[in-house]
Design a protein around this nucleic acid. Structure first.
Lengths: 332, 332
DNA sequence: TGTTAGCACTCCTCTTGTTTCAGTGCTAAT
DNA sequence: ATTAGCACTGAAACAAGAGGAGTGCTAACA
């Protein structure tokens, strides 16, 4: 791979990303001040190396997955955000009152919007949260809100209609007992301890203890079941990408977005920004996924951008780098 | 419109709904024990009346919008749910612990799923909610959760980092003051009263009252801004409908789903189940929207099904009738 | 008077053939 | 090492024709 080949490959990849049309030798003549024949020779060499492909014998070249990869690893440098992008994201990060979680999802919304790709935020199941406080808020004579709050500040609430034979005082008391006994318990264990530790105790003082138990049991159950927080933005942006011009392909990919278990696999483990092109994505052979792990202030998860293989790598990576930087800033 | 014409129209509409193919005279011969010629005469008459259309001179008939409308108003009767559908919906309605709101959205999810249409739930802006309680939950030395709860049981929560110069006691005290002064205030007015009624009071006893005010102000603000609750399910189900076979049409409709202000207009005012076909939908000339208003237990809104004009009207209307019935049941 | 057989006609759809053109690989000359 | 030249390939666009589903109309029939 001499310098000229690298430049050529870079040019071809970028041209294809921009125009979605196979690149012919003629188109590159002026830029490189070489004849088309020379370019053709070089292209043939790049094809032999596995960086370029042809759709058919006389069609011009498109980058192969390996070509994209080489481009990302060696030829491209992340693009700085332009003023508008910067502005939009800054207003989010500089909003002191936004929770980190909301800031991330809002960010990804904006990114989906300005890139026309699909963004995904995968929240880690909050299994390491512990119980911080349980409380109830009476609404009227027969309705209450039960609140559960974890040490990381996640709040779940649930409205209940109180069975007739239960007194508010009993609920308040149970609440106190739970707070006394279970605060600090990992949220995954709370249901268990509620049944085996708390229930026996309230059974001694509260007549309808089964019904009271049910209420709190339900409130906690919601928590453990609500742990699949996947956030999408721009799920249908794929329609805006010109290369997806046949319905079956669109259907295939959109259906995959609906498949929660498949989406869950997007989760990233390694640090930094990682690019998975085509087959590598393990999601669909015709998409690229760029992922980045975050772990900020107790919130953990993955953000990912899903787009065509001819994604604007420099731009997306630039955006993610910026976000990571801002998140670290906010973590302090 | 004699009886035979009605039957014929019914048959044609239902055949087209099922097979998405223009209906020719031959196909109806056996069913009606008439020759194709007679059928053709009748079809010509139905076309003259505006109930049928042709794509071109030799193409078989398809129902016009007026034809669909006549079918819905006069020829069709709502279909009873089958066992499976019934079962799926019942498990939701009979789940005592589900809030009415969640029950509705879960229902519509199921309907989108079993019908392959798109379902929409438009919640009314909860402008008639009043403040029920404000509370704070300390997480650690410098973080709290602020909770706002309305009389209808809607809860918003927000995590805050407490500025260094503020004491927890001051927050608790402010909380008490707010609860004493503002409970019962319409949620839309709370911000105002916080500023003009509460702020002057806390300014007398709390040193950093501005910062404390900010925290509660923010918590309330979230509330008033979060009132645009539109819930979609099956947004891409349109891809499963065979008549949408060209990308531009799909794009057009999917884009409309993304346009919040357009979706907001789906809101229904009249009672009962209403069918808006094609142009009537005021959303897109190529869709039908079936809407139904709900007003249960203080929760108000619209549920709607969006699908092709050849929607399975009997099935969808049957489903919505069932849901309305169950909702009324639950309201008692 | 309502129904039906028969027929000419229309227009979509599918297939086949032709042309055009962008782009290639290879060879030989510079 | 570069390039001009040339034969070749395959997609894309277009035209022409065959086949077929379905129509409207007319005239005959019960």
């Amino acid at each position: 791979m001499d310098e000229r080949k690298k430049n050529l490959l870079k040019e071809i990849v970028e041209s294809y990303i921009k125009f979605v049309k196979p690149v012919g030798s003629q188109a590159l003549c002026k830029k490189f001040k070489l004849s088309s024949a020379t370019i053709r020779n070089e292209m043939a060499a790049l094809e032999k190396l596995g960086y370029l492909e042809k759709n058919h014998v006389s069609s011009g070249r498109i980058p192969s997955e390996r070509g994209y990869k080489y481009y990302v690893d060696n030829l491209m440098k992340p693009k700085e955000l332009n003023g508008e992008e910067m502005l939009k994201l800054q207003t989010i990060f500089h909003n002191q009152h936004l929770q980190i979680n909301d800031a991330i999802t809002k960010c990804m919304e904006i990114i989906a919007d300005i890139t026309n790709y699909t963004s995904v935020v995968l929240g880690k199941n909050s299994s390491d949260n512990t119980l911080q406080q349980v409380s109830i808020i009476p609404l009227d004579n027969n309705q209450i809100i039960a609140l559960v709050c974890t040490n990381k500040g996640i709040v779940e609430n649930k409205k209940f209609t109180i069975p007739e034979n239960i007194f508010m005082g009993e609920l308040v008391k149970t609440c106190e007992i739970i707070n006394k006994m279970l605060v600090g318990t990992p949220i995954t264990k709370v249901s268990q301890r509620l049944e085996f530790d708390v229930k026996p105790i309230i059974s001694k003082t509260i007549k309808q203890y089964e019904a009271v138990y049910e209420i709190f049991h339900d409130a906690f159950n919601d928590f453990t079941h609500n742990n699949s927080n996947v956030f999408f933005s721009g799920k249908t942006n794929i329609l805006k990408q010109p290369e997806y011009d046949n319905i079956d392909e669109i259907k295939r990919i959109v259906n995959k977005f609906e498949d929660e278990s498949l989406v869950r696999k997007i989760e990233e483990n390694s640090d930094g920004i990682n690019v998975y092109i085509g087959e590598e994505s393990e999601f669909d052979p015709n998409v690229t996924i760029i992922k980045s792990k975050f772990n900020i202030n107790g919130e953990e998860g993955t953000i990912a951008i899903v787009g065509p293989k001819r994604m604007e790598y420099d731009r997306v990576i630039g955006l993610l780098e910026y976000i990571n930087k801002e998140l670290q800033e906010k973590d302090k």
